[in-house]
Amino acid sequence: MSQTANTQAAATVEMRRALAGRKVFTFDQGIKYFFLFNASIAIVAVMAIIAFLLEQGLPFFREESAASLLGRRWVPYLDTGALYGIIPLAAATAWAVVLSMLAALPMGVCAALYISEIAGPKERTFLKNFIEILASFPSVVLGFFALAVIAPLVKRIFDLPSGMTLLTASIVLSVMALPTVISVSEDAIRNVPMSYRRASLALGASRLATLWRVVLPAAKSGVIAALMLGTGRVVGETMAVLMVTGGSPVIPASPLSAGRPMTATIASEMGEVVYGSTHYSALFLIGSILLFITLGINLVIIRMTAGRE
């Protein structure tokens, strides 16, 4: 069995060598480079976007200092004396991440445990299909839903003058992050070797104890990856937060306050900003910061998963 596999592998290697060894530039090779080009588009795009964002964003520091970027007020529309403090924007984004992950992580992990450990095969497919449908909803639609249904609900429950709050946005965001959290943590849970479960059950542990004390801790790094990826989704989400957070650039004191997350700021101001102005570069700088946050998250996950294998 393994003998044939070995010879097959050897044959493939030989064939590849033979192909690569040909000196003449053939049609086949042209096609090879064509495919290589397509495969490299992602790399080129990432590099080009980072370079572009920084090129457009860094001129900000020619006019303003880093201290003004860390100011507590965002008033960019004034002709003179404009203020570019991103603290209120970053604070709104931070609130949205924390609140939505507080809801999405436990829900997502419990859902993943059920799907991978308890549900039968039919039930599993059924549930997973619905989760995929949820993941495919356009965020504008969810934003609409939040504005029409969740905002009035939040307003009534907390007896607020207006339902456009960070909490409202966080509820939608947690729904958006849920599919990511579920599928990543489900993968991790499924990758826990069967022998762990058997050993635990053989020692007389109940099924719940096995799930909670053995399987889940073993899948810990995957669950953390789910948390990070969910965070990435929430940090970058724009449309829904633009529609329901109220857009006020205050430093939010509570989940029931309005806010103006970083993405919403870019989306609503990029349209009018004068090309090359300080305000313009400030928006690109915010974009760079968002990009580096998500890039950092991805690097951490890549390192974590590399360590596991």
Partner: peptide, 21 residues
């Protein structure tokens, strides 16, 4: 310069949305 909107004004995306609110 000092004449500014209050930071906590709710900023909506259009006339229709202000009316709705």
């Amino acid at each position: 310069e000092t004449d500014q909107y209050r930071d906590d004004m709710k900023r909506t995306q259009g006339n229709a949305q202000i009316l709705d609110q």
